[in-house]
Simulated scan of single mutants.
Amino acid sequence: MLMEHLILLAMWLFGFIAFLLFIPRKEWRKGLLAFLMSQAVIWLCDMPSFKYGLLSAPVRELPKATDLPLTINYFFYPVLFAIYYVRYQPKSSLWYRFTYFFVWATGTTLFDIMLERYTDLLEYQLLTWYGMWIYIGFLNYVSQACCNWFYKDEALFQTDGRPS
C-alpha cells in the first residue's frame, strides 16, 4: 500500500513538472482547456466503467467517497492529454497524425497496463488490454474533438488590442 501511495505522489509531481516543461508558457491556456476537457470526458465515461465493473481501483485516494482513482483519471491522464493536444500538429500529413495518435494511445495504455499488472491502483475486471487501448483512444479522440470544436473559429478569440 505504501508503494501505491508513493506512485500516486510521483504522478502528481511528474504531472506538474511535465505540464510546466512540455507545454510552452504561451500555450498554457490551450493546455488548461485540454486538461479540463479531458477531465470532463473521462468523468462521463469512467463513472459507468467503474460502476458496472469494467474497471476497479482497490487503492485510491478517497475510498469511502468514490470508487474512482482521482490521481490517475482526473490529474495524470488529463495532463498527458494536454501535452498531446498542445504538441499536436493538425496541418501535418494524415499519416503523421494517425501515427502520433496511435503512439500516444499505445504509450498511455502501456503505462495503464503496468499500473494494472504491478500495483493495486487499477484492476481490469471485464476489460482486456486491447479494450483499454480502444477506451483510451476513444477518450483522447472525443477530448480532441471537443477541444477542436472550441477552437473552431480562432478569429473569435483574437484580440487586436483595441477595446470592444
Results as ranks from 00 to 15, higher is better:
G31M: 00
T108M: 13
F14Y: 01
S143L: 03
R87P: 05
Q144K: 08
L9Y: 13
F19V: 04
L127D: 00
Y135T: 09
A105L: 02
L36M: 13
E154H: 11
T99R: 15
V86S: 00
W104T: 07
T109W: 03
K26R: 09
M1L: 07
Q89N: 12
T159G: 13
P48W: 04
D112W: 06
R117W: 01
L13I: 15
L94T: 10
Y52Q: 08
V41T: 11
T66C: 12
Y130S: 05
Y84A: 06
M11E: 00
E116P: 00
Y130Q: 11
A82L: 00
T71G: 15
S164L: 12
Y118W: 11
P163S: 10
S93V: 05
W43K: 09
E123K: 15
L62E: 08
A105H: 08
Y100W: 03
R25L: 14
L156K: 07
F150N: 03
G31R: 06
W129L: 00
F19I: 03
Y141F: 15
A18F: 08
I113S: 06
F101A: 10
D160A: 11
Y135R: 12
E123F: 12
E116L: 02
P69C: 10
L6R: 09
V59A: 12
E154C: 03
P24I: 07
D112K: 03
Y77A: 11
L80D: 06
F98I: 13
Y141H: 07
G137P: 01
L115H: 03
L94K: 10
L55V: 02
S49R: 10
P24K: 08
G107R: 01
R117L: 07
L121T: 01
F22D: 02
L70Q: 13
Y118S: 06
I42N: 12
L121V: 04
I113N: 05
D120E: 14
Y118P: 07
V41R: 09
F81Y: 13
L44Y: 03
F14E: 08
D153S: 07
D46C: 13
Y135H: 13
R87F: 01
A40C: 14
R60P: 05
Y88L: 10
Q125T: 09
A145M: 12
R97D: 01
E123H: 15
Y88P: 01
A145L: 15
L2N: 02
I134F: 14
F35A: 07
L13F: 09
C45I: 07
M47V: 11
L13W: 11
T108E: 04
K51Q: 13
T66E: 12
K64H: 11
R97Y: 00
M114P: 03
A155P: 06
E4H: 05
R162A: 12
Y85W: 10
V103F: 05
V79E: 12
F98A: 14
L54W: 12
T119W: 00
Y74I: 00
Y77T: 06
W43G: 08
T109V: 06
T106K: 00
Y135F: 15
Y135W: 15
I42R: 11
V41S: 03
A155Q: 05
F35R: 01
Y100I: 01
F138N: 14
F98S: 11
K30R: 07
L156F: 09
W133S: 03
M37S: 15
L13Y: 09
Q89P: 02
T109G: 09
A34T: 05
D153Q: 00
F81L: 02
I83H: 02
Y52K: 00
S143R: 05
A105D: 02
F98C: 04
